[in-house]
């Protein structure tokens, strides 16, 4: 479903992604981990069609993301570091606006159910600027899943959430993954936030260091630290990068 081949992204002289090769199947739940500056957010933004790659190829459902086809964008739900919400609108007005933008007919029931799921039904008609950081994050989650996307790109979704809100988010994400939604989520705390994932990808300095099944959550942090402690890999030639998938199999 997602095919990434030799993906590169540079911001001037700074290289954010350096020849990333990945395949993610439909319905997979993938955790993307790595230290600050690893390129996780850049990768998500490219998949969300919000940033153009400098090199390589990225296909989602067979479509080139650089063409930013509306059909692809409608299938993507994106939660970024920023809430993508309007401070001067109420929670309900924000969701109604996005529902109209996504062409949803009669979205009020869906909006009410999502506001309830994220615990904001009593604050639905309050301005977002009056919300705490955690409440804004909960509303941002509701916005990201409003149009029932098939691919959910979540950049540190648990940031700013208290325990109850984190549990509510987990339930919401579980519901979405049960109906086949593909999940690609970044985190700095894989052991605490990785319970929904099946697979973990470790990135550092724009490269994929490790890619494999989730395994035991209790040992995940130690494994993650051990992977990061490895010496940085030397970039293989681009032709070799493009010729193998994440399992090392020839394409």
């Amino acid at each position: 479903m997602i095919e990434i081949r030799g993906l590169k992204k540079a911001f001037g002289p700074r290289v954010a992604l350096d020849g990333v090769v990945l395949d993610i199947e439909a319905g997979e739940r993938v955790l993307l981990v790595g230290p600050n500056g690893a390129g996780k957010t850049t990768l998500l933004r490219i998949l969300a069609t919000l940033s153009r790659p400098t090199g390589g190829a990225v296909r989602v459902w067979g479509h080139d993301v650089t063409r930013a086809d509306v059909a692809i964008r409608r299938m993507i739900g994106f939660l970024s570091h920023e809430s993508l919400l309007y401070d001067d609108l109420t929670a309900r007005q924000n969701l109604r606006f996005y529902a109209r933008m996504y062409g949803m007919d009669k979205p009020d029931a869906r909006i009410a159910s999502l506001l309830s799921a994220v615990g904001l039904e009593r604050r639905a008609d309050d301005l977002v600027r009056e919300f705490s950081r955690g409440m804004q994050q909960r509303l941002a989650v509701a916005r990201a899943v409003l149009h029932a996307p098939k691919l959910l790109l979540l950049d540190e979704p648990y940031t700013g959430l208290d325990v109850a809100a984190a549990d509510a988010l987990t339930v919401l994400l579980q519901t979405l993954t049960q109906v086949g939604c593909t999940l690609l989520m970044t985190t700095h705390y894989p052991a605490q936030e990785g319970h929904l994932a099946q697979r973990v990808i470790v990135m550092r300095r724009g490269r994929v260091l490790d890619d494999g099944p989730l395994g035991e959550l209790t040992t995940l942090d130690a494994r993650y630290r051990a992977i990061l402690a490895r010496p940085a890999p030397v970039s293989p030639p681009p032709a070799a990068l493009a010729a193998v998938d994440w399992r090392g199999k020839e394409l």
């Binding site: 920023e82 993508l84 933008m101 804004q136 916005r143």
Partner: peptide, 19 residues
């Protein structure tokens, strides 16, 4: 500036049919 606040422009870019 209102669109720049909280990355609203990214939300619009994701949702619009044509930019």
């Amino acid at each position: 500036a209102r669109e720049q606040q909280n990355g609203g422009l990214s939300g619009l870019l994701l949702a619009v049919e044509e930019r």
